[in-house]
C-alpha cells in the first residue's frame, strides 16, 4: 500500500490479503502509542484515579486494622486478614482499570468522533483489540503499583512468606484471561451507543460481587457461588492471595493457572469474533456515527 520510499513510482504492489504476525504487532503497537499519548494528556484524571485508588484501598483495609485493634482477630490471623483485604482492593483496582481501558475502546472513540476513521483503517480487528488490551494491562499495572507504594506504609504486614514469582505468573495468566472479558464488555457500547458504557459498568459490578474481591467466594449463597466459577477474576484473586499470604508455588497454583489459561484461550478469540459480529451489525444499522 503506502509508498514507503516517499517518491514517485510507476509500479505499485497490490494490497495484502493477509498481514504477517510482525506487521500485525506493529499495527497493534500503534494503539499502545496512541493510548499512551492520550494518557499523558489526561494526567489530571490519572491523579484523580490514583487518589481514589489509594483512598479506597486504605478505607477497606482499615476495616481489618480495626478488627485487630479491637482484638477480634490477632496474630497471624490479623496479618492474613489485612493482607486479604489489601490484595483484594489492589487486585480490584487492577481488574477494573484493565476492564475500563479495554471497554473504553469504543466509547472514547465515539465521544471524540474518530471511530469511523479508526474502523476504516486496514487494521485486522485482532491487532486493534489486542493492542488496546496490551496498553490496558500496562496502564493498570502501573497504576496498581503506585497505589500499592502509597498504601503499604499504612499497614504493618508480614510478607516474608510471599512468593512474588508465583504472584507475577498468576497476574500474567490472569491478565490474559481478563482481556477477553474486557473485549466483551467493549462490545456493549458498539451495540448500544447511548447506554453501552453504563452496561459495561454493570458487568464490572457483577464481577466485583461474584469474584470474592473483599470476601471469600464461599461466603456467597450457593446460587451466586456457581457464577463465581465463571469469573476469571475469582481464580486470579485466589492465586495472588495464595502466593502472597501462604507462599504458594507455581506448582501449587497449577490448577487455577490452567483454568485461567483455558479462559484466555477460549475468551480472547471468542470475544474478538463477537466484537467483529457486533461491528458488522453496527455497520448494517448505521450505529458507528459520532456520539457526544
Amino acid at each position: 500500500m503506502a509508498d514507503t520510499a516517499g517518491t514517485t513510482t510507476s509500479r505499485f504492489a497490490p494490497p495484502a490479503r493477509r498481514f504477517s504476525t510482525r506487521r500485525q504487532m506493529t499495527l497493534g503497537w500503534a494503539f499502545v502509542e496512541r493510548q499512551t499519548n492520550l494518557w499523558k494528556r489526561h494526567w489530571a484524571w490519572e491523579i484523580v484515579w490514583l487518589v481514589y485508588g489509594v483512598v479506597n484501598t486504605l478505607a477497606i483495609t482499615f476495616i481489618a486494622k480495626q478488627l485487630t485493634t479491637e482484638g477480634i482477630v490477632s496474630g497471624k490471623q490479623a496479618n492474613d486478614l489485612i493482607l486479604f483485604l489489601l490484595i483484594g482492593t489492589l487486585v480490584w483496582a487492577y481488574l477494573s482499570a484493565v476492564l475500563d481501558d479495554i471497554s473504553l475502546v469504543v466509547t472514547w472513540e465515539r465521544w471524540e468522533g474518530t471511530i469511523e476513521h479508526t474502523l476504516m483503517a486496514p487494521v485486522p480487528r485482532v491487532a486493534h483489540l489486542v493492542g488496546t488490551a496490551v496498553f490496558g494491562v500496562l496502564h493498570a499495572l502501573t497504576r496498581t503499583c503506585l497505589i500499592m507504594v502509597f498504601a503499604l506504609p499504612f499497614f504493618t504486614v508480614d510478607l516474608s512468606h510471599a512468593d512474588w514469582g508465583t504472584a507475577a505468573v498468576v497476574m500474567l495468566i490472569g491478565s490474559l484471561s481478563l482481556i477477553g472479558l474486557g473485549i466483551l464488555t467493549g462490545v456493549l457500547p458498539l451495540l448500544y451507543p447511548e447506554r453501552g458504557e453504563q452496561m459495561s459498568f454493570m458487568v464490572q459490578a457483577v464481577i466485583l460481587l461474584i469474584s470474592g474481591v473483599y470476601y471469600s467466594v464461599e461466603t456467597l449463597p450457593p446460587a451466586l457461588r456457581i457464577f463465581s466459577y465463571l469469573s476469571p477474576a475469582t481464580y486470579l484473586l485466589r492465586g495472588v492471595r495464595a502466593a502472597l499470604i501462604n507462599g504458594a508455588s507455581v506448582a501449587d497454583e497449577a490448577g487455577d493457572l490452567l483454568i485461567m489459561a483455558i479462559f484466555a484461550v477460549v475468551l480472547i478469540p471468542a470475544s474478538i469474533a463477537v466484537f467483529s459480529a457486533a461491528e458488522r451489525w453496527a455497520k448494517r444499522t448505521g450505529r458507528l456515527k459520532r456520539q457526544g
Binding site: T4, T26, A30, H117, V123
Partner: peptide, 11 residues
C-alpha cells in the same frame, strides 16, 4: 497524524 499513519502500516 502519527497514529493514523501507523494504522496504515507507515513507519
Amino acid at each position: 497524524l502519527l497514529f493514523y499513519g501507523r494504522v496504515y502500516g507507515m513507519p
